[in-house]
């Protein structure tokens, strides 16, 4: 991600303009949010809330990272909170759904007829593994950047990436063939 790679100078509150934020980062935030939560309407709500929080908290932005990285951190927290709320609702409704269950199972029909097999396979991952894949391969972040944005250790990030890639390789074996063999699996301390 080129934009997040370079630092920006410290910005006073007045320089954060809503129109500019939306024009420069809105669409990218929306697309990432849609991948994270797998629902366009929820993604739109999350982006709206991200921008509201960013504008209300703009005084706290000191330019230690790129504007997009800062916005993305807010979005990620909102996605996680949203996800937790969903889990509570599901629990309250007494529905059978484990924490790591896919939001929608990938069917053979999907595999055959959907050209976006990989993107579809992403839905089979747990939220934390999906996050790792999106941050790495959609946002193009380096390991240390993912660790910073997601609030994790680099070891945890790498562990999640390796696991997620192995899972994806099982769902779409033709597309991904990675460090998956049992003798070379790498374990990281979290």
């Amino acid at each position: 991600m080129n934009q997040s790679a370079h630092r920006v100078p410290a910005l006073p509150q007045a320089t954060l303009d809503l129109g500019e934020l939306i024009a420069e980062h809105g669409e990218r935030l929306l697309r990432s949010a849609a991948l994270l939560c797998d629902d366009l309407h929820e993604a739109e709500d999350l982006v709206q809330e991200t921008l509201i929080q960013a504008m209300r908290g703009s005084a706290r932005f000191r330019g230690e990272c790129a504007v997009y990285t800062w916005l993305y951190g807010i979005l990620l927290n909102l996605c996680r909170r949203h996800r937790r709320k969903q889990r509570r609702l599901i629990y309250n409704e007494d529905r059978m759904l484990s924490e790591t269950a896919p939001s929608r199972p990938v069917t053979e029909h999907d595999q055959t007829y959907c050209a976006e097999g990989l993107a579809l396979a992403l839905r089979t991952l747990s939220q934390e593994h999906r996050e790792a894949i999106i941050l790495r391969y959609y946002e193009g972040l380096k390991i240390d950047e993912i660790a910073r944005v997601a609030g994790l250790s680099t070891g945890t990030v790498k562990s999640r990436l390796h696991y997620a890639l192995r899972q994806l390789a099982q769902v779409v074996p033709g597309e991904l063939n990675l460090f998956g063999s049992a003798d070379t699996q790498t374990h990281y301390s979290e």
């Binding site: 809105g26 697309r31 991948l35 993604a43 739109e44 894949i133 391969y137 597309e175």
Partner: peptide, 22 residues
């Protein structure tokens, strides 16, 4: 694999655009 994933994720979201009322 990184290239495949990146391309697939970009394709799957390419048609999304912001609501004009945002």
């Amino acid at each position: 694999a990184g290239r495949s994933l990146r391309a697939a994720l970009q394709r799957s979201t390419a048609s999304l655009s912001l609501n004009p009322g945002l």
